[in-house]
Design a binder for these strands. Sequence first.
DNA 1: CGTATTTGACCAGCGC
DNA 2: GCGCTGGTCAAATACG
Length: 176
Amino acid sequence: MENFQMIPSLLSSEMGHTRLFAHFSGTDDDHHEMKEEEPKFDLHMGNSNNNFGNESGTSFGSERNSKKRPSTKEGKNKVKRHKFAFQTRSQVDVLDDGYRWRKYGQKTVKNSKFPRSYYKCTYQGCNVKKQIQRLCMDEGVVVTTYEGMHTHSIEKANENFDHILKRMQNSYTTAL
DNA sequence: CGTATTTGACCAGCGC
DNA sequence: GCGCTGGTCAAATACG
């Protein structure tokens, strides 16, 4: 688990169907370990015209840096990454945000009956990662966690996500 | 045939 | 220090 700290300021950012609930900002030194429960707001406005499935409640979640694997040999730089998580009510696990993702792993997590999937952006030089997991208590909700910023632009724009992504970028820049 | 996914192994961090 | 848990790698496989 990580520490989730939600920033209320983002709670009001809503775009037509999707909403950001909270944004986690963490620094890498991780001093804040206030991890409560993740913001599980569900507001599903029950639309059905989203690109993703049909729902749309999204909530924002966390950000934190993770000390990466020093690899086997160069272990010195603890990369502080920004994580941005949000929950979405959707039937589909992988939301099409306009980027191309390559799945590189899947793990079962202890608290969830559903596995978590790990994706990486396939654009060369772009190390953005994201992980997707479904809430065990509410299998209609998927939690998507983005890590890092894209170094390129979106290939195929997604109306809904474009807004979310912008929000994320703003948070990143303001956080830095 | 090239690229994406699957899946177990591997590794690092943390708690006990 | 050991074992559990989560994150990544990589080989094999699936898919177009």
